[in-house]
Design a protein around this nucleic acid. Structure first.
Lengths: 147, 147
DNA sequence: TAATTAAATAGAAATAATTTTCATTTAAAT
DNA sequence: ATTTAAATGAAAATTATTTCTATTTAATTA
């Protein structure tokens, strides 16, 4: 998977830079979603000089290229997650441990007809995300449960 | 509708303050979603002294009470919208004029079974929102189309 | 392989968004 | 009218994001 990155970046007309690859690697190895600031902290361990704008820019580009995807957390920050599944899908996110699991079922197809009929406009995108606690956290009763 | 506000607030154990009512009124009369900063600007026209934290606090409380609801805009700010429909539903938002239309169909019920089966955790909430251009903006070819 | 060029980056600073703290005011219960 | 807890303003702190510009670097070309 890691070996595919250069090719993938090339397709998106993004240069293959060590930092870009490192960001991808970090997100891929984490099984949880990270905020730009968190990615930056991890990057600083590898590169003495790495600017926050670089992280923001890359996350945005990679997200536009659908290599990573965005997750909306109730605390209103945006987070990024490395997407195993590059095709259209949605996410279950664990509010406790931040784990993301792909949902490969999209009820939006049926909805689309309904909405188009009603709106009579143009549908461009949609956000669908299910929030909860994963099985593991449910048993451990961590974090959110304590407070 | 406006007359119902005091009762509604009472049910939520929120005091009926002029500012709280004004925020509700502003959101109700706008047919588009507004950011906290925008609500604040409108409030300043009515109240010479109104702090931004007051607006933030109120929007959050009202949103928790389900009197208004949140909308996620691609530019990553949160916006608020006065909800005609207090029961469970979703939104179509126009990326051009910011109009919000309720979608009274929720494909999540079916999805829920699928997800629960796969996740084996606890589902708490979900976000579903359809983004696009409304019929009106599609004809006018405004804003987003120009650039 | 060296030269070229356009994209990527650092660094600093600006801007924007959100939250905290605390003293004061006010709604509503008594 | 008095009391009390919630709501508010003001100022500041914090956090998040973007902009700008000079420099560096990846990748193309000669």
């Amino acid at each position: 998977m890691l070996n595919d990155f250069p090719l993938t970046l090339k397709k998106l007309n993004l240069k293959i830079t060590p930092k870009r690859l490192a960001i991808l690697e970090i997100l891929m190895k984490e099984s949880v979603y990270l905020s730009p600031g968190e990615v930056w902290k991890k990057m600083k361990k590898r590169f003495k000089r790495i600017g926050l704008p670089t992280v923001y820019r890359n996350l945005e580009e990679l997200s536009e290229g659908n290599i990573i995807s965005e997750v909306t957390h109730p605390n209103r920050q945006l987070y990024y997650y490395f997407c195993q599944n590059r095709s259209h899908h949605h996410h279950f996110i664990c509010l406790s441990c931040r784990k993301v699991e792909d949902i490969n079922f999209c009820g939006l197809n049926e909805l689309e007809k309904e909405v188009t009929k009603k709106i009579k406009g143009k549908l461009l995108s949609h956000i669908m995300q299910v929030n909860g606690f994963c099985r593991h956290c449910l048993n451990k009763k961590e974090k959110y449960f304590d407070s």
